[in-house]
């Protein structure tokens, strides 16, 4: 059962990913991205990470994608121009991808997959568990992330101000 769900969700994620790069209309790419996000959410659920599942659906599939849709809607239904390609580019790309896939396949034959560590699934993945982990074990990376976001915000303000005198 779990395997079947995984296979379906994984196939949807890959198909969505291909859709993102393959479609020419931005709106279709955005909608494909929604498919990827939702499929990933299902994968998180399979890994018993309920909280991440909820966040993935609300924040990514919800909020972030709505922003994307807004931008696309504001810019109008523009179409990506298919110019600037070499004549043999599709064939070459296919060839390289095939070679890379074969290499990857050969290489991955000897992989030793680890067994997952046994955790208490009653608390694993819950909000409380994540909070405890964040503020004890991952305290330092967590604080670093806040600093990172602060710097990104400063940069966004500086770069997007209309004139430097506004600062």
């Amino acid at each position: 059962m779990g395997l079947a769900v995984f296979l379906v969700a994984a196939a949807m994620a890959v198909a969505g990913g291909i859709g993102v790069v393959a479609f020419h209309e931005p709106i279709r790419s955005v909608l494909s991205l929604v498919v990827v996000m939702l499929a990933l959410a299902v994968l998180f659920l399979l890994l018993s990470a309920q909280f991440v599942f909820v966040v993935q659906v609300i924040v990514y599939a919800g909020a972030v994608m709505v922003l994307f849709l807004f931008v696309v809607a504001l810019l109008g239904p523009a179409k990506e121009l298919g110019r600037g390609r070499l004549r043999f580019q599709p064939w070459l790309a296919g060839l390289f991808a095939a070679v890379f896939l074969i290499l990857l396949w050969v290489m991955l034959q000897g992989v030793q997959y680890r067994q997952p560590a046994i955790t208490d699934l009653h608390i694993f993945g819950t909000v409380q568990w994540i909070a405890v982990e964040l503020f004890t074990k991952y305290l330092y990376p967590f604080e670093l992330t806040s600093l990172l976001l602060l710097v990104a915000a400063i940069g966004a303000i500086y770069l997007s101000k209309r004139s430097i005198e506004d600062l």
Partner: peptide
């Protein structure tokens, strides 16, 4: 001493530099 922290440090440094590279607006 962790891959997580190393990546965060790398991003903190890179993002600051992306912005100052475009400082001459």
């Amino acid at each position: 001493t962790s891959l997580v922290t190393a990546f965060l440090g790398l991003e903190l440094l890179s993002i600051s530099l992306y912005i100052v590279c475009g400082y001459a607006r």
